[in-house]
């Protein structure tokens, strides 16, 4: 049953993104920023945690999940280290993903060249 929940949650989040791109003038870049910020804010308000419990990877793989990890990390950071944790917690929690994206991205960019489009 988990698989169905994962699929539906992930699918719905993507459909919201699609509607934003088709129905408004927002570019993919705007949608990325909006979703990450929204994920963080919803986590702060305690709304995103239940979605993650329900949808699992369906809620953590889409970009609001990135915002969720950031906000959750910051809150946990405050719990363990006080105010300094607000600064370190979120970035610590997402560091593997961000570092991987940057390092892999750099490596791929060095190896491959863009191709013309047909």
């Amino acid at each position: 049953m988990d698989y169905v929940y994962v699929f539906i949650t992930g699918g719905i989040i993507c459909v919201i993104g699609q509607l934003l791109m088709d129905g408004t003038k927002l570019t993919p870049a705007h949608v990325l920023v909006l979703f990450v910020t929204l994920g963080a804010v919803l986590t702060g308000l305690g709304i995103y945690e239940p979605i993650v419990d329900f949808g699992k990877s369906g809620a953590t793989v889409p970009l609001p999940g990135f915002g969720y990890s950031l906000a959750k990390g910051a809150i946990e950071g405050v719990k363990s280290d006080g105010l300094l944790g607000a600064f370190s917690g979120g970035i610590e929690a997402t560091a593997p993903g961000v570092a991987a994206a940057v390092v892999f991205g750099y490596a791929i960019a060095v190896i491959f060249s863009p191709k013309t489009k047909k």
Partner: peptide, 22 residues
């Protein structure tokens, strides 16, 4: 150039949320 804004907004939001929580 495209990912920077995501990190800027994401990090800022998380720090603000952390501070409010504190």
């Amino acid at each position: 150039s495209l990912a920077g804004p995501v990190l800027v907004w994401g990090f800022s939001a998380s720090v603000i949320i952390g501070i409010i929580y504190a």
